[in-house]
Design a protein around this nucleic acid. Structure first.
Lengths: 358, 358
DNA sequence: TCATAGATCTGATGCGCATTAGGAGTTCGT
DNA sequence: ACGAACTCCTAATGCGCATCAGATCTATGA
């Protein structure tokens, strides 16, 4: 943080770059005049053509480039969209999980004329992961948040400011204060269950992960709703929680022998539950859908070791990313009547791992 | 750019956020004192503990968050790394091509404590794609550039400033002025040719794309060197240029009947040549490596329609991205003795599309 | 002919923070 | 007991630009 150059000339990128003041001197006008002329045609009404040309020429001659930082400080906007992901570590594989969102975010940001500011440095600095870093978020005009678990306290603080924010995922704890774009897991999951029931499955197991992320809660709710609508009972043993470690082939075999014909799992950023089921089935020698039907809630868009075409539903990640950006830019622009909470529906995927009951 | 709030309080993110001045007032000290105390322990030597605590408490009470923009303006640094991709349009598929680089860039940036600023808005605003946007680049402390074709004039201008810059790819036109991290295509390609020759191939065709990107030039050079080293002749018909449209199955069949046993293509961001060869072979009914051997220079890391394991070599994209970030942060920090031009070697990939001559 | 209304431009100021010179008070040395 | 050396803090200033309230001059109208 110590300047390298002389005093009054901080280090970094602007050692001998021309400023508006230089142009002004060269053109024989004042700095504000230069500012008016260079900051676009609309504001430059009331400037003589002669002056304008003089200034433009001087600017051209000096190779002037406006300093975006100063611009932002003075004008309070810089066409930057922040992107913050709540992820403790930075596993390479996981970055794939967010990639589809990114594609949508990138495209829409570009379309709206915003650049993207990815806050990633935080993911490394272990201690106080978010508390401190959330400040940096203000570098942007608004910020998009992703990740299964969002830090309540810091978020609450951030929401107290007036920085436009959008969360990618459903989250109602903050009521209307936190705008979001989520996926309608409840409906989609119920639909999946209904589909399985139509295929003749009556003993359906739901294998979910340990954590209580909103998406997980929603999916379980959808599962229960779907079961209820089909008149199927949900007992205590119908919903299995696992982090993968306790899901042995023997356990799976036990279920099978008790008459379970279909398993529903969820796709997450780690895919722990889903992978565990695949692994156990592989060890036990079960195949999908011949021996057992499998439906995965929110099929991973990227290749995952295992069956090529998973049954279940797909999360419209790209569209969600784009919608989130639209919402965010809308908030930044102060548009009225924005739907602050948006749920996008998920497309059912017939796939190849679910079939008629054996 | 018009303020929404009152004058002196530009729109955007800082409507009623506490500033250092507010803390100062609350704690009964001056703003510079607050600055000294909050900007870290080292500079705060010579501050009474009592004062320090008072200020800290006030800051805590107000929920102070420093404004990164102002910080940057005053201090000249903001721990932001720019990332600019020269790409006319923004096709979704193409973003995949750069993804491996991104992974390396992200990881290393995070490790170095930098956030990433992706300049993407440019890719949409058609006219003057780069000229104007390259200014924005100065938002960051330094900038990474990617893309096959870099705009010479704008780059030249940018290099005239002292903004640290690194190009991801070889490019010697600017001499020492443009630091880069590239891949050693020449050596790797020659190695591929040598490998084919060892498999008994003597009639090897090189199918490349139309454009003369540096990487393309290097690969052709490597091809010629490899051929020369193996005592194989390179005639005018040995190197085929195509954008894919004129590569019919008939044409491929013609080569085959003239005794060609192996084809070398290049992987690019569009993979035009490579795809064309695959398509023609598919139509003509040729299989790799049974009928024809195929080596692809710079095998795509992501799934591509066609054979699963392409022979050729793989570009160490992740490592290149990381190396580029290291170089860039080194430049920003003003480290001496940095290797401004780095070529990373590519790993040969035996693959499954090249085999012994039939 | 004199007040009015444009047309053009400039001076002053602020954005939020960092930096530096130096002032006021205190302790120390001889 | 008096200047030197410290300690702790503040006034002043700048970063590069945008904004706004005038100032300075012409045209225009009555």
């Amino acid at each position: 943080m110590k300047p390298i150059g002389g005093p009054g000339r901080p280090a970094g990128s602007r050692a001998n770059r021309p400023r508006q003041a230089d142009i002004a001197r060269l053109a024989g006008v004042s700095q504000p005049t230069v500012s008016l002329i260079l900051s676009g045609g609309s504001a430059a009404v009331g400037i003589a053509d002669e002056t304008r040309l003089k200034v433009m020429a001087a600017a051209e001659q000096l190779g002037y480039m406006p300093d975006p930082i100063a611009k932002r400080l003075a004008a309070g906007q810089n066409n930057l969209l922040g992107l913050y992901t709540f992820t403790a570590t930075f596993p390479t594989e996981m970055s794939h999980a967010y990639h589809p969102f990114l594609v949508g975010i990138e495209q829409e940001s570009a379309a709206q004329g915003y650049d993207l500011l990815m806050f990633i440095a935080s993911s490394i600095t272990g201690e106080r992961p978010h508390a401190e870093v959330l400040n940096r978020v203000r570098l942007a005009d608004g910020c998009l948040f992703m990740g299964r678990h969002l830090p309540i306290r810091e978020m609450d603080r951030l929401l107290a400011t007036d920085l436009p924010v959008v969360y990618l995922g459903r989250h109602d704890d903050f009521g209307d204060r936190l705008p979001y774009v989520g996926a309608d897991y409840v409906t989609a999951t119920a639909e999946v269950v209904r589909h399985l029931a139509e295929l003749g499955h009556h003993r359906i197991l739901y294998v979910r992960e340990l954590d209580d992320a909103i998406s997980a809660v929603d999916r379980e709710a959808g599962f229960r709703r779907g079961m209820a609508e089909c008149g199927l009972p949900v007992e205590r043993s119908t919903v299995v929680r696992t982090d993968g470690s306790d899901l042995s082939a023997d356990r799976l075999r036990g279920w099978y022998e008790q008459g379970v014909t279909a398993i529903v799992t969820e796709a997450t950023d780690t895919d722990a539950a889903h992978r565990a089921v695949l692994a156990a089935a592989s060890t036990a020698g079960y195949r999908f859908p011949e021996d057992l039907s499998l439906a995965t809630l929110g099929a991973p868009e990227h290749a995952v070791p295992g069956p090529a075409f998973l049954s279940g539903f797909s999360v419209p990640r790209r569209e969600m990313g784009a919608a989130a950006v639209r919402l965010l830019t809308g908030l930044i622009a102060g548009e009225p009547n924005l739907a602050r909470h948006q749920l996008m529906s998920c497309e059912p995927v017939p796939g190849e791992t679910a079939g008629a009951v054996r």
